[in-house]
Amino acid sequence: MNTGSGSLSRVGRAGSSRLLAGAVLLGLAASLLSACAGPRQPGAAAQNPALLALNQRYALAEADLPATRLAPEAWARAQQARQRALDTADRVDAGRATPVELNHAAYLAAQTLTLAREAAASAQARAAIDAARPEHERLRKQAVQARSERLQAALASDPAHPNPGSNGPMDTPAQRDMRLATLQLQLHGMASQHTERGWMLELGEGWFAPGHSALSPEGQQELARIALVLNANPAERATIEGHTDSHGSHGSNQALALRRADAVRQGLVALGVAADRLGTRALGDSQPAASNDTAEGRRANRRVEIYLSPAGDVPGAP
């Protein structure tokens, strides 16, 4: 009779013999594999050129202490990447990774180190820029103060100008210098240029339709900005000169130019500029800014020019 304990012992014996056979097979396979790999020197992967170059770069980076301090997180990532590359080298030595994988790990580590160095250099530059800002402010204030003191001294020593607060007809060179600088700032962005007759502002390029004197919406917007400048500089007066293209007779162009100048004058008065500060002149088609042979040229010639000059200057004198 077959007992249960007998069958169990048979199964146990069969299992252990299978395990033994398996172990023998594994051992054989391992020795075959190692034989195929050939004689292996310990640490041979450490001679990988990419790893050698990487180690040199890390040695240099480690010597650069500010770099490691300025970008600590990037530096920590770089060290981790290097450790991964070294681990891969060990795995290559142990036959568990390929040289291709080692090259890849070394490349990643090198690029991570580059990132750390770039981050450190950026942090260094940013710190220098931040440090320069207050110095710039201080120097700017110093320069403005020195300039102001210089102007005050020039005004005080000028007997021809008893009242330095106004910029009227008796402008000294220093006052004029300051006034022009202020105007230049205020006129920034407008179609303006400094001429012998003072600052010239131009309302042109499509702000008047042919044969018409009404300002376009763009012209009205620009006029509002000019009114602001004039209101901020009560000592300036403006001479408004109307121009036309060459279409039509000389007489009709003169009349049209005057209507255009008047339209601008009325616009400025409506915007709060005192009427007695504004003069008008009609120049018709006598002073074209561009050729009247083309549509573009005629468009540029339909314009109004506003000359700003100190109140004492004779308005309208070209």
Binding site: Q111, T114, L115, E118, A119, A121, S122, A125, R126, A128, I129, A132, R133, E135, H136, L139, R140, Q142, A143
Partner: peptide, 27 residues
Amino acid sequence: QVAEAHAQRVRLRREEKDARALTLSLQ
């Protein structure tokens, strides 16, 4: 990422150089 970091470093170096030039100019 390296390209981006490199460009940022170049830009900041340029700004730093400009800042130094501005300091000299203001002085």
